[in-house]
Amino acid sequence: MKYVMIEDIEPGQILGKTVYTANGTVLLSAGVQLTVYMISTLKRIGVTVLYIEDQLFEDIEMEEEVVSPKLKQAIFREMHGISQALKSGKDFNAASVATNVDMLLGSALENKDVALHLAEIRTADNAEYIHALNVCLISSMIGINMQLNPSQLKELAIGALLHDIGKVVPESKLPLEQGKEHHAWRGYDMLRQKREWSLLVAHIALQHHEKLNGSGEPRGLTAEAIQPYAKIVAVANTYDNLISGGTSGDKPLLPHEACEQLMAASERELDRDILVEFMRIISIYPNGTSVRLSTKETGVVVRQHRGLPGRPVIRIVRRTDDELDIKEVDLSSETTVFIEAVLS
Results as ranks from 00 to 15, higher is better:
residue 279 M to V: 01
residue 31 G to A: 03
residue 100 N to Q: 02
residue 1 M to H: 14
residue 60 I to M: 00
residue 85 A to Y: 15
residue 28 L to I: 00
residue 34 L to Y: 06
residue 41 T to L: 12
residue 255 P to N: 12
residue 56 L to D: 15
residue 292 R to W: 03
residue 162 L to A: 10
residue 216 G to K: 03
residue 64 E to A: 08
residue 83 S to W: 08
residue 197 W to T: 03
residue 234 A to G: 09
residue 237 N to A: 00
residue 34 L to V: 10
residue 198 S to I: 11
residue 177 E to P: 10
residue 76 F to C: 07
residue 334 E to Q: 10
residue 241 N to I: 02
residue 327 K to G: 02
residue 254 L to R: 13
residue 73 Q to V: 13
residue 324 L to K: 04
residue 153 L to R: 09
residue 20 Y to F: 13
residue 85 A to K: 10
residue 156 L to D: 07
residue 34 L to K: 04
residue 152 Q to G: 13
residue 16 G to S: 07
residue 35 T to A: 12
residue 159 G to S: 08
residue 84 Q to C: 12
residue 296 K to F: 14
residue 223 A to M: 06
residue 59 D to P: 10
residue 147 Q to G: 01
residue 281 I to L: 08
residue 145 N to Y: 05
residue 261 Q to L: 13
residue 14 I to E: 03
residue 55 Q to G: 13
residue 105 L to N: 01
residue 21 T to P: 10
residue 76 F to T: 05
residue 65 E to H: 05
residue 167 K to L: 09
residue 130 I to F: 12
residue 320 T to Q: 12
residue 260 E to T: 14
residue 73 Q to F: 05
residue 217 E to V: 01
residue 197 W to H: 05
residue 53 E to N: 06
residue 315 R to H: 07
residue 36 V to Q: 12
residue 211 K to Q: 13
residue 76 F to P: 04
residue 145 N to S: 11
residue 132 A to K: 06
residue 262 L to G: 08
residue 269 E to Q: 13
residue 177 E to C: 07
residue 14 I to M: 00
residue 225 A to R: 07
residue 147 Q to A: 01
residue 197 W to P: 08
residue 157 A to S: 13
residue 92 F to N: 02
residue 337 V to R: 12
residue 131 H to P: 06
residue 50 L to M: 15
residue 168 V to S: 01
residue 30 A to F: 05
residue 231 K to Y: 08
residue 209 H to A: 12
residue 171 E to G: 06
residue 187 G to C: 05
residue 338 F to A: 01
residue 13 Q to A: 10
residue 40 S to A: 15
residue 227 Q to V: 02
residue 195 R to H: 15
residue 168 V to G: 05
residue 294 S to N: 14
residue 154 K to Y: 00
residue 31 G to R: 01
residue 101 V to T: 05
residue 166 G to T: 06
residue 334 E to K: 09
residue 77 R to A: 00
residue 135 V to T: 14
residue 252 P to I: 11
residue 93 N to S: 09
residue 214 G to A: 10
residue 276 V to W: 11
residue 218 P to W: 00
residue 43 K to S: 09
residue 162 L to T: 09
residue 325 D to F: 04
residue 295 T to N: 11
residue 282 I to T: 09
residue 250 D to K: 13
residue 198 S to M: 12
residue 166 G to N: 13
residue 43 K to M: 11
residue 137 L to Y: 04
residue 214 G to Q: 10
residue 118 L to S: 02
residue 69 P to Q: 01
residue 206 L to T: 11
residue 231 K to E: 15
residue 320 T to W: 14
residue 332 S to R: 02
residue 111 N to G: 05
residue 219 R to V: 12
residue 101 V to S: 03
residue 262 L to E: 03
residue 337 V to H: 03
residue 187 G to V: 01
residue 16 G to Q: 08
residue 120 E to F: 12
residue 6 I to R: 00
residue 212 L to W: 03
residue 100 N to I: 01
residue 37 Y to K: 14
residue 320 T to A: 15
residue 190 M to R: 14
residue 28 L to M: 04
residue 316 I to S: 09
residue 73 Q to C: 13
residue 331 L to H: 02
residue 163 H to S: 05
residue 203 H to G: 11
residue 263 M to L: 02
residue 212 L to P: 06
residue 232 I to D: 11
residue 144 I to L: 05
residue 229 Y to L: 04
residue 185 W to R: 09
residue 338 F to I: 08
residue 57 F to A: 06
residue 65 E to F: 03
residue 228 P to W: 00
residue 159 G to Q: 09
residue 258 A to G: 06
residue 237 N to I: 03
